[in-house]
Amino acid sequence: MLIKFLLIFFLLALVLRFVLPVLMRYLVVGFLQKQARKQAQHFGGAPFGAAPNASQQSRAASGDVQVDYVPPRQKPAQPKEFKGGEYVDFEEVK
């Protein structure tokens, strides 16, 4: 009786330790890929920000705006070094 229990416990521990993580990884990756394809079909784009193909570009309506180039933003001019400001005398108010 005790040996049967220990054998079942040992086999269950092996399955939980080595087989279950591989199986879960396979199931989760498959689920995520399925959801990505579903969202791509729903919104008409490629999953994960991939570039659209030529057939999708040709289907664009005549009134749609397409931006091919976005110029980089210029950083605002900042002084190179702070040389200090005007001295303000502190006066305690009671």
Score class of each variant (00 low, 15 high):
L16F: 12
L32P: 00
K75F: 08
G63S: 12
N53S: 09
G44D: 05
Q57K: 06
P21L: 13
L12E: 10
L12S: 15
D68K: 12
L11I: 08
P71D: 10
H42N: 09
H42C: 06
A50M: 04
A40G: 15
Q78K: 13
D64K: 08
Q57M: 14
P71Y: 03
S58D: 10
L16W: 06
V65L: 15
K75A: 15
F31A: 09
D68R: 07
A77D: 06
P76D: 06
Q39M: 13
K34N: 11
Y26P: 00
A40E: 01
K83C: 03
F18C: 10
L23G: 03
F82A: 10
L32R: 07
V65P: 00
V15H: 05
F48M: 15
V15Q: 08
Q78H: 11
V28I: 07
K80R: 14
G45C: 13
R59M: 11
P52K: 15
V65F: 12
G30D: 14
Y26A: 11
H42S: 06
K34A: 11
A77K: 06
G63Y: 12
K75S: 09
R25P: 00
Q39D: 12
A51M: 12
V22W: 12
R73Q: 11
K75H: 10
F82Y: 15
Q35V: 13
E81N: 03
A54R: 09
P47D: 02
L14I: 08
A46D: 00
L11V: 02
L27H: 09
Q57D: 05
F82W: 15
R37S: 07
R73S: 07
K34V: 02
F18I: 04
A61S: 13
P47I: 00
F18Y: 15
Q66G: 05
V29A: 10
L11P: 00
K83Y: 08
R17T: 13
K38G: 01
D68W: 07
L11S: 02
V19P: 01
Q66E: 13
Q74R: 09
V29R: 08
A60F: 14
Q35Y: 02
A50V: 02
F10N: 11
A13F: 06
Q78A: 14
F18M: 09
Y26H: 11
R59L: 12
K80G: 15
F48R: 08
A60T: 05
R59F: 05
S55E: 15
V67E: 04
M24S: 05
P72K: 01
A77H: 07
F10D: 02
A61E: 13
R25A: 11
S58I: 10
G44K: 05
Q39G: 04
L32W: 03
Q35N: 05
G44M: 04
Y26K: 08
L23F: 04
G45N: 11
L27I: 11
A46H: 00
G45F: 00
Y69L: 12
E81V: 06
P72W: 04
Q41N: 13
V19N: 01
A13E: 04
P72V: 01
S62G: 03
V28G: 00
Y69E: 15
F18H: 11
G49D: 02
V28D: 04
R37A: 12
V22H: 13
A36I: 03
L20V: 14
D64F: 07
